[in-house]
Design a binder for these strands. Structure first.
Length: 440
DNA sequence: TCTGGGGTCCTAGGACCC
DNA sequence: TCTGGGGTCCTAGGACCC
């Protein structure tokens, strides 16, 4: 358990050894290589690219991957030709785009967009369902290929990784008078290894830290290789929108805009006091450091999971009372899936929680901590049911989920103490409460 | 006819303890 | 006869990311 905080608290102070401001000028001698050389490698339109390996005839066409829970309505016979694929216009349901090919992005659709909305923009785009097994297979392949070149890898999900190149042999070699020649060659080797192993392209950024590398891998997509060193920050970083910084989302971006801050350079020039006044000490300091390209988070090769969860969005909103007959079995199945996930991964947990999303998109959560860890499906179901009883169930639900936290490595044979308790939870207010968890 | 599923981390208040 | 003050655990909500 060595998960570092993603942001540096003010107590950590700024990382040492840096000049304090935007005062770099062109110098005659090349700057020495930084202490660390960190790569961020991002697969290009990953899910879509894996699908194009399978359907090469779709190359260059607008294709979106995504899906709802409904069967593809007009997926005709699987005769393997382009006309067999569903079109976006035929979709009906609640799915979102997971990945869009670059041709589809040119039509204005992007990941996260609802498929119904995307269909209005690009009705003729091809819609392919998700095939997670295939994506996981290719994910393992590209990560293994990278590990052959540079073994210190931090997993950031199915399609991206950080790689610590600091101690890779040759990384600090000067090639043809270029002090970055060695590290550039390693970047090219990484890309070639990924291509050889998977047939897929990726984009790589190499810089002194994770923050800058993440930004840089995005500067020349697809199939890019971008090196960015501290002296490049004013020219290459500061013109970018502040929201390009990993960790500045829509909310923070709006608050920055209200301060008249739109670019990373404007953020770098903002008085620290002003940022702290607006965002608090922690985030204020972090914003300031980030805008100056400073980040000393290490590349973390393994971390224990903190929680494991299952959730599902219904095809139509369900009422806790009227649709009790549907909700009960769905809820039970989520608990069983969660129990089997815990077993497969070798964890038990002490904190069981539920999550509901109402039809108006409001989310409520409830959780309870048990005296003993468990992974038993019936235990989970029982305690999650107790949590549900404390939630107002007075309007339709869009989503329900179950989560286990406070995880520990374990085999699940150490406890049965929680099995039959009637517990401490009191109903919430005076709202009508329905228990759809008990079979009628 | 908006808006998936699986995660991480932070904040903030209350309980409880020394 | 006010006002303590840290530290930790628990719970709920929210921002953000892939």
């Amino acid at each position: 358990m060595s998960a570092p905080a993603p942001f540096h608290s003010p107590a950590d102070g700024p990382p040492g050894g840096h000049a304090s401001g935007p005062d770099r000028s062109v110098t005659a001698a090349p700057a020495p290589l930084p202490d660390r050389l960190i790569a961020h490698l991002d697969m290009d339109a990953f899910y879509a690219s894996v699908e194009l390996l399978r359907y090469p005839d779709l190359q260059g066409l607008p294709v979106v991957i995504g899906g709802g829970r409904r069967p593809q309505p007009s997926a005709q016979a699987e005769d393997g030709r382009a006309h067999a694929h569903a079109r976006l216009r035929d979709y009906a349901g609640r799915g979102v785009i997971t990945t869009a090919t670059y041709a589809a992005r040119a039509l204005g659709v992007h990941s996260g967009m609802g498929l119904m909305k995307a269909a209005a923009l690009a009705p003729d785009a091809i819609l392919l369902p998700l095939d997670f097994d295939a994506y996981r297979r290719h994910s393992r392949l590209f990560k293994a290929a990278v590990a052959e070149v540079a073994p210190v890898i931090e997993d950031r999900g199915i399609d991206e990784i950080y790689i610590d190149l600091s101690d890779v042999p040759g990384a600090r070699d000067t090639v043809g008078g270029d002090p970055l020649g060695g590290v550039r060659a390693i970047g090219q080797r990484l890309k070639q290894a990924v291509k050889d192993a998977t047939g897929l392209t990726c984009s790589v950024g190499i810089t002194p830290n994770k923050l800058l590398s993440k930004l840089s891998s995005d500067l020349d997509k697809p199939d890019g290789l971008t090196l960015l060193m501290p002296a490049d920050i004013p020219v290459r970083l500061w013109p970018l929108p502040a929201a390009r910084i990993n960790g500045i989302g829509p909310k923070a971006n709006e608050r920055l805009a209200a301060l008249g801050i739109h670019t990373i350079g404007e953020l770098a020039a903002a008085p620290l006091d002003q940022l702290i006044a607006e965002f608090g000490s922690n985030q204020g300091h972090w914003l300031h450091e980030a805008a100056h390209g400073r980040d000393d988070r290490p590349v973390v090769t393994w971390r224990e999971p903190k929680s494991i969860s299952r959730e599902t969005t219904f095809e139509r909103d369900l009422h806790p009372r009227d649709d009790r007959a549907s909700l009960g079995p769905i809820f039970t199945r989520l608990c069983e899936q969660l129990a089997s996930d815990l077993e497969r991964k070798g964890y038990v947990g002490r904190s069981i929680g539920v999550k509901l999303r109402y039809d108006d998109f409001r989310i409520v959560t409830r959780s309870i901590t048990l005296p003993q860890a468990t992974r038993d499906a019936a235990d989970i179901r029982r305690w999650a049911g107790r949590c549900l009883k404390t939630v107002p169930l007075d309007r339709r639900l869009r989503l329900i989920g179950v989560k286990m936290a406070s995880l520990a490595v374990g085999d699940g044979h150490t406890t049965d103490a929680t099995s039959s308790a009637e517990g401490p939870l009191a109903p919430h207010g005076s709202l009508p409460l329905f228990d759809f968890t008990e079979s009628a």
